[in-house]
Design a protein around this nucleic acid. Structure first.
Lengths: 332, 332
DNA sequence: CTGAAAGCGCTTACAG
DNA sequence: CTGAAAGCGCTTACAG
């Protein structure tokens, strides 16, 4: 069980003071280049690396960002994290990933631990049951910026980076209108989720305005299985009028596709199908499913630059919406 | 920017020494229950929580585990991490997740940072290009146990927890034999991967021993797209003899399923299909695909108990293989 | 240009 | 039962 090298060890070996070593290693202008040289060489040789705990205790800063997500097996969050990591690396920050398992209790613990560890900032997609924003306010009091992304609280004055729910819903709706469908089934998620409300409302609005004649039905499913059941029971037996299904999310799309396969129907011939997705699930089928793209990567880039602005001080709360774009598959 | 409460603050308010507060808070037998009571009450009130950096600096221990994986958008790793987190919580450890992006350079950085942070232990699935095991040995010298899982190094004397590649391949092969297929296509991953070699070899062995008459063909695909192309070109035009496809991994299964959909074939009627998977992809199709299960959750439980053994000192190196089981879908 | 000293927030051996 | 003191490994204002 070997000890890590310390400033003291270097100082002793070189017969200088700890202060000098510390300064030399951070290229302080006071130190002669000769001294710097020998110190850096030895440090290199014995693989000195500063103890992050000591630094933090002293300076109250960690150069660490935390990303908190409800779930990890999620392509969207994965690309979000990639984007954050790319940028963070460039700025000398490291990033730690926490998973709340969509449990507000665990989320609270994570936030607490972030506070005690004095992370430099937090990116968080909250759980679907998070109602208490006090812990976030507390973080703020302690000078830790919080950037909400994807799943964000209702609370106004905070930094939020969101998928363009309305925009995504509207471009999907427009595609349905453009293709001239007359009979449309919209399957949405849990009624209580803010993204459900946003997507549903906009989708309806665009459909109604586009063509009031359309036979439009909307339902809510809280799971993949429920979406499958709903699809099974709501696909008309005779698909005479041009029929299309819109799926608000990947989870719903997965259920709906199972029902479609079960009925041995083939998009786009038998019916039209379109979703909102990050692109992973749609690419598993043939023909690939057309979707309005929600890009975790874009969101990550936006979130990071917001974070840097907060850290540099100019931290008025702001909500940023990332616009969506249509990715053409062959399902509609 | 408020300060977190400290021992000192409590001590001052209560007119006792810092030492007494520290001891009271950890229920040291020396302290009178009266003193303990008032200290705990105040601590509770002002939400005292010890500074983890100070503790670590003092005690050289972090009560933190690191999990390092190549990728996050992966159901298998997700369940592995769930299992670790469940157990860790019970023992008062927290777990930090790192992603190497399958890049040995990044992996090295992560390991270094784990060493400096003196994490209590590391669970790691190495990148496909990790060859240098020196960093892991160094961790060991510093008394940080490393448990390799899923993707493990060739190196003998270390702790490895692996999926039962041979076992999974053999139960899939046996299922094919049992159903009496005469014409079998096995699609495997990159030839250089150890799991490919293990799965291929065992699959062939079981098939040959089971029925030497079978028309068996094996191919390698390095991506989903390649698997799709291979499947398209290798499915016989006339499926007269009973034909089955075995897919070594989810990635390959995804490509193969696209080809099957493209050809408008329906398992199990037109052909048999079986894979090795964690279960996420197989459940997206109807009928669901039959697979030999590799469970991240099981692996996590096994890995954790190995870790605890290492921490408690009895740390001879050991390789543990998790056995697989057949999950029946309707594709074969 | 270099060093001695204080202090970040804790723990613990030692003394009483 | 309680406290004073040392020390974990760093940084930085102050002094020279």
């Amino acid at each position: 069980m070997r000890q890590n090298p310390t400033l003291k060890k270097i100082a002793e070996k070189l017969n200088v003071s700890i202060s000098t070593v510390s300064r030399a290693l951070k290229d302080h202008p006071d130190i002669s280049s000769e001294t710097k040289k020998k110190i850096n060489e030895l440090a290199e040789l014995i693989e000195y690396d500063p103890n992050p705990y000591a630094i933090n205790l002293r300076t109250h800063s960690s150069k660490e960002f935390a990303v908190v997500v409800p779930s990890l097996s999620n392509f969207f969050y994965h690309s979000f994290i990639s984007a954050i990591e790319e940028d963070a690396r460039d700025y000398g920050y490291s990033v730690i990933i926490y998973r709340s398992s969509n449990d507000p209790k665990i989320e609270q613990q994570i936030l607490k631990s972030c506070r005690h560890k004095r992370v430099s900032g937090i990116f968080i997609a909250i759980t679907s049951e998070t109602t208490d924003i006090a812990p976030f306010l507390k973080l703020d009091i302690h000078g830790i910026p919080v950037i909400f992304f994807d799943k964000v609280p209702q609370y106004e004055s905070c930094n939020k980076i969101c998928v363009g729910d309305e925009h995504a819903a509207s471009i999907a709706a427009e595609e349905i209108l453009k293709k001239g469908f007359r009979n449309v089934l919209g399957i949405f998620g849990d009624k209580n989720m803010s993204i459900t409300q946003a997507r549903l409302q906009k989708f309806m609005e665009v459909m109604r305005n586009g063509n009031p004649e359309i036979d439009l039905k909307t339902v809510h499913a809280r799971s993949s299985e429920e979406a499958e059941q709903l699809t099974l029971s709501l696909i008309p037996d005779y698909l005479e009028k041009k029929f299309a299904i819109f799926c608000m999310s990947d989870e719903i799309l997965a259920g709906t596709m199972k029902a479609i396969q079960r009925k041995r129907l083939k998009p786009p011939h038998d019916l039209g199908l379109i979703g909102i997705s990050d692109g992973m699930i749609p690419s598993l089928f043939y023909p690939e499913i057309t979707y309005a793209e929600t890009s975790g990567y874009n969101l990550g880039k936006l979130a990071y630059s917001r974070m840097m602005r907060c850290i540099s001080g100019s931290s008025f709360a702001q909500t940023i919406i990332d616009q969506s774009k249509l990715v053409m598959g062959g399902s509609i």
